[in-house]
Design a protein around this nucleic acid. Structure first.
Lengths: 218, 218
DNA sequence: GTCTATAATTGGATAGAC
DNA sequence: GTCTATCCAATTATAGAC
């Protein structure tokens, strides 16, 4: 997989390089390492996995990992960052596209669940191992997540104004939907039918959680 | 708090002692230790917290902890076990009581969310640090969780048969509801109004997720 | 049941050759 | 960029006095 954040390299005007890379994919080794590490972290937990174990999985010695990452925590950060940067940079624009609030939120949730299913272990690690990040790195991740959540809340609120959703608290509903969807990464199996999964959860979210104000509960 | 599982002590006929204990609460120190440990585990992660740190929080030295728990992992196990035994032993009977499936599920969810809110850090640790348990201990916990989930699925299915719920897949819906509810432990604040929280989530679950089959999505 | 002292191991990270 | 060899700090757990 690509999508493992590269270290910040000064570049032309300081902006991100075009997505079509010229060379043979710089940091391909980084991606391999991060991918192997994510598998181990997901299965055994960040702290129980040693650098030697990760190294062995990609065919090198522990010390050689430090040619690609400055520390073990940097590997975890790269994994967690990829799991928040992609949603923010690629899914959030779906909320700014044409269409009704419900259509735009549906597009975002579709992309979100597909991304989660395609990167299940990374997603799980990014959710679960936040405490192992340095405070600075953790702040970056939580900022991304807060922004994402805020944008979802806003489109829910827009849907309420447009008469498409019926919820008391858009903030609560947004959190509930995201928790429900992110919960998938805890139990998803490789043989799960992702198309069916996506449509089921779209129904649970858009026709369920976001339509819950239908009758009074005692 | 009470509710920290005691080690298995041979007792009369081999059954659990009556819940009203004779002495000055045996293992009160155990409960204090587990409570302090859960706070640290929740904030910094299991592996980054040392026995010395836990010990200091309860006013003793690291070595003295071993008079109450045989290992650090035993502390974690006690925390995780309390968070699955209470739901199974105290909440599941609500599903076997009188009333319609929706009423019984409402009672269970109320109890579940209240328990979660009353033991937020323990609940979070029990969810997040499963990988740090020994395989044997982890198996006990996951067995409890699977049983709980299965019982929720069954009452959802009963509600569908009774015409109270409208879902395609009771299993999927049960998982979605539990993920949504358990997500609370990640963001709950001490100043949150728990009564309001409980009723909001009952609405999201019973009138939302479990009523989602209302129209066809393209 | 708590203490001081320490054993024993682990595991992240570095040095320096190639 | 990878290797071998090693350092060094941290930490769980134990021994044994009180």
């Amino acid at each position: 997989m690509t999508g493992v954040p590269e270290p910040a390299v000064p570049d032309g005007d300081g902006r991100r390089p075009p997505s079509v890379r010229p060379r043979t994919v710089p940091g391909r080794r980084r991606a391999e390492i991060a991918e192997a590490a994510a598998r181990f972290f997901a299965e055994h937990g960040y702290h129980t996995v040693g650098m030697r174990e990760i190294a062995e999985a990609v065919g090198m010695r522990g010390a050689s990992l430090y040619n690609h990452f400055s520390s073990k925590e940097e590997i975890l950060y790269a994994i967690a960052l990829a799991m928040t940067e992609v949603p923010v940079e690629q899914h959030i624009p779906l909320l700014d596209a044409e269409g009704s609030p419900a259509d735009r939120l549906a597009a975002l949730l579709r992309a979100h669940i597909r991304h989660l299913a395609d990167h299940r272990v990374e997603h799980l690690v990014g959710l679960r191992e936040l405490a192992a990040l340095t405070p600075e790195h953790r702040a970056v991740i939580t900022d991304h997540r807060r922004y994402y959540q805020r944008r979802v809340r806003d489109v829910v609120a827009a849907g309420v104004r447009a008469g498409q959703f019926a919820v008391d608290s858009p903030g609560r509903a947004a959190v509930a939907v995201l928790d429900m969807v992110n919960g998938i990464s805890w139990w998803l199996r490789p043989d799960t039918d992702v198309d069916e999964l996506v449509e089921t959860y779209l129904g649970l979210a858009l026709d369920g959680v976001l339509q819950h104000a239908r009758e009074d509960r005692a």
